[in-house]
Design a protein around this nucleic acid. Sequence first.
DNA 1: GTTTCTTTCAAACGATCGTTTTATACAGGT
DNA 2: ACCTGTATAAAACGATCGTTTGAAAGAAAC
Lengths: 237, 237
Amino acid sequence: MPPDGLHRASGDATEGARARLLAAAERLFAERGMAGAGLREITAAAGTNLAAVNYHFGSKEKLLEALFTQRARPIVAERLRLLALCRPGRGRPPMLEQILHAFLRPAFSHGAEFGRLRARLSVESEALYRRILSDTFDASTRTFLDAVVAALPALPRAEVTWRFHFMLGTMVSSMANSGRIQSVSDDAIDPAEPEAVLARLIPFLAAGFRAPLPKPPKPRETAPAPGTRPAARRRRP
Amino acid sequence: MPPDGLHRASGDATEGARARLLAAAERLFAERGMAGAGLREITAAAGTNLAAVNYHFGSKEKLLEALFTQRARPIVAERLRLLALCRPGRGRPPMLEQILHAFLRPAFSHGAEFGRLRARLSVESEALYRRILSDTFDASTRTFLDAVVAALPALPRAEVTWRFHFMLGTMVSSMANSGRIQSVSDDAIDPAEPEAVLARLIPFLAAGFRAPLPKPPKPRETAPAPGTRPAARRRRP
DNA sequence: GTTTCTTTCAAACGATCGTTTTATACAGGT
DNA sequence: ACCTGTATAAAACGATCGTTTGAAAGAAAC
C-alpha cells in the first residue's frame, strides 16, 4: 500500500528510488515523449522494479506532475530572484535586457533535458499537459509579462503580449534544440553553452520587443495566393 | 498484395482512401503525436479498414513520410515563388521584411494541423523524424538563409545563422499554438488568422535580425550570478 | 462466362502497454 | 520473539499496439 497521498514529501534518507525515477523519467520523457517512453524502460534506467512508479507516484501521469513540480520550483524561484535584482535604467523601469536575462537564464541553466521536456509539452494539445505547464509556469510568466510591459511604456499591452508569446516560442525552441543545431548551415554554431545562446538571444529578442508598432489592422481583402488552402475552419461563436 | 513501391503514385480516380487516410493522419498525428495516435483511430477517422494503412503506405512511418512529402511540396514551392517576386529595396538586396514574408506566409497558410505536426516533429529527437523534416524543408530553408544573409550585409553570416534559428523557433512555436494562445494574459489575442500573426511576427523578427552585434565573446570566466550553477544537479539544501 | 489485378474486409498474430496483485524482505517499537 | 508500516520483487492482468494473413468483393479485359 502506498504510504499516503503526498508519498513522504518530507526529506528522507531512503529517497533513492524516487530521485532515480525522476531523473530517468526526465531523460526518457524528453527523448521519446510521454507516449513513447515506457514505464519498463524508465524503471530499468532507474534501477528499480516496474511497480516502483505506481508505488511511489501512483501513475505515469502523476510521475510527470511530480517531475514538473520539483524541477520547475527552482527555476521559478531563481527567475523572481533575478528579477528583484534588476536595477532601473535611466528611466524608471528596469532595462528590458535585464528582465529578459532574469527570465531566460534560469530556463537554460537548469538542465537541457528538462528544457527539451518543456518544449515537448508546449506543443502538446492534451489538457493534462497544458495544465501542468500552466500550473508550474504561468504565474511567474505573468509577472514577467507585466515587467516587460512596464519596460516598454510606448507600446500597448496587447502588442507586448504578442511579442512575449513570440519570445516564449523562441525560448522553448532554443531549449529543445540546445546542443544540436547542426542542420541548416555548416557554420560553427554550438549552442551547448547556455551563456552562448543567451548572448545572442537577448539582443535579438530585445530588438524585437522594441520594434515600432506595425501598421494597424488593414481590414482589406488580400487575395490568397493560388494553391493555399483556407487553413482554418473557424467556428462561429 | 500491394501494387508496387510507389503505390500508384499517379493521379487516379480511386484515390479516396489514400487521401482520407492522409487527412486523418495529419489531424491525429498533430493532436496526439506519432506515438499517441493509433492506427485504429486513424483508419476509423478515415472510414477505412485497419489494414488500409499498411496496404497503401506500407507502415505507419511510411504514412508519415508520404504525408510530409505531399504537404511540404506546395509550401516550399510557394515560398520560392514569393522569394522570386521580392523586389530589391533602396540598396541591392530585397527588403528583409519581404524575404521573411515569403518564408513565413506559406508556412501559416497551408493548414494549422500541418503546422502543429511540424512543431511536434521539430522537438523530436528520433532520427527518422529529424530526417523527414530535413529532407522536406532544409533545401528551401538554406536558400532563405542565404537571402537573409545577403539582406543584412553588415552582419557576419554566423550571427545571421543564429538569428535565423531563433526565427525558425518562433515560427514553429507560433504554428503550434495557432488558434490557442489563451494562456498568460487575458487580452484579446486570437491568432487564428495567419495574416494577423504575420502582421505582428514579421516586424518583431525583422527588428531582431537588425539588432546590433552583441559584444564579442568574453573569452574568460565571467562570474555567474550567485546561486546559479551550470546546469548540474545540486545536493540537498 | 472466366481470368486477372486491385482493393477491402474480418480476424488473428506476437509484442508491449500501464496497472494491479501477491508475496517477501527489512526496518523500528513494544 | 511479535506486530506494524515501508519498500522491493516477480508475475500476471486486460487492453492496445503495429502488422500480417487469407478470404471476399469489385472492376476491367478477354
